[in-house]
């Protein structure tokens, strides 16, 4: 790791470095506004939230909003843990499928040569540019046909076909995995499946860690209100839905609603931090040199 950083400093001037730092930190301050705002809203007592003119920071910070939220969650008709379980199932099931299916397909597209490959490649590319909004009706009809309405499959399984995953994985595999390495593994008698799992996947770890972050964030946030579209039974709803119901209780719940926003933000952020630090570690250990 040390070696890497010292090497990257080959072509750098001090003046440029200082300028870069200034730009980065000015930007960081500007970008962190939502965090600061959301957290400070959640720490305000109710009367300060409606203060006119609005105050950016709380005068008397309190955790009341959070304790109110937990009280409301405890009163929920379906236990709150059930919602959490649904959300985790959706997020984990959806991400895992997307990463596995996506990278299997991406490996074949990047390193194999077979009839129909170009067609698949362009279908994937083009499908990224079609507005998802008009696909809702066809989706609904498909779900009804498969009788997946009112089952978590309606949300988890379509995530496996997410185009972003293959596209991203293919780029990275094409770029980071040298053909010679794959050739060598084949000569050693490794099966294609083994090559994918043991050779390719470890090298492109930054790619699938990034993909997990993206998947996690989308699925956790209940994209396009899918839970209201395909799920009717209360015990199948995800956590963001349940929490939005609590918020729906009117202005009196404004404080609680700010607390909800914080809680919904904490989960993707935690995953993000774990993942990003992993990305950094991988690069130190991949140890792949050129052809």
């Amino acid at each position: 790791m040390k070696l890497r950083i010292s090497n990257r400093r080959l072509a750098r001037s001090v003046g440029g470095d200082i300028l870069v730092f200034i730009v980065i930190f000015a930007m960081a301050a500007f970008m962190s506004l939502p965090f600061v705002y959301t957290i400070s809203q959640a720490l305000k007592p109710l009367n300060e939230i409606f203060l006119f003119p609005p105050q950016f920071f709380p005068r008397h910070p309190t955790l009341d909003n959070f304790s109110d939220l937990f009280l409301l969650m405890a009163q929920s008709w379906v236990p709150i843990t059930r919602y959490l379980f649904n959300s985790l199932l959706i997020v984990l099931g959806g991400s895992a499928g997307n990463v596995i299916f996506g990278s299997l397909c991406a490996y074949a597209l990047a390193k194999h040569d077979f009839p129909g490959k170009n067609l698949i490649n362009s279908a994937i590319l083009l499908s990224l540019m079609f507005a998802g909004a008009v696909l809702v009706i066809p989706h609904y009809l498909t779900m009804a046909y498969l009788s997946w309405i009112d089952s978590l499959a309606a949300i988890i399984i379509p995530a496996w076909g997410g185009t972003l995953g293959v596209f991203l994985m293919r780029n990275f595999i094409e770029h980071m995995v040298h053909d010679s390495l794959i050739e060598a593994s084949r000569i050693d008698g490794a099966s294609e499946f083994k090559i994918w799992w043991r050779v390719v996947m470890p090298i492109v770890k930054p790619a699938w860690l990034t993909l997990i972050i993206l998947n996690f964030q989308t699925l956790w946030g209940d994209p396009g209100g899918q839970s209201t579209l395909f799920l009717y039974r209360e015990e199948l709803k995800p956590l963001p839905y349940a929490l939005s119901q609590i918020i729906g209780g009117g202005v009196g719940r404004a404080g609680v609603s700010a607390a909800v926003t914080v809680i919904l933000m904490v989960v993707p952020i935690t995953i993000f931090i774990i993942n990003q630090s992993q990305i950094v570690q991988t690069m130190g250990t991949s140890g792949i040199t050129g052809e």
């Binding site: 074949a108 696909l135 379509p158 994918w196």
Partner: peptide, 16 residues
């Protein structure tokens, strides 16, 4: 290798 993804992709993206 391509089949599992392609199946889901066709049903939920291409056909719609």
């Amino acid at each position: 290798f391509v089949a599992p993804f392609l199946l889901v992709f066709s049903v939920f993206v291409i056909i719609p």
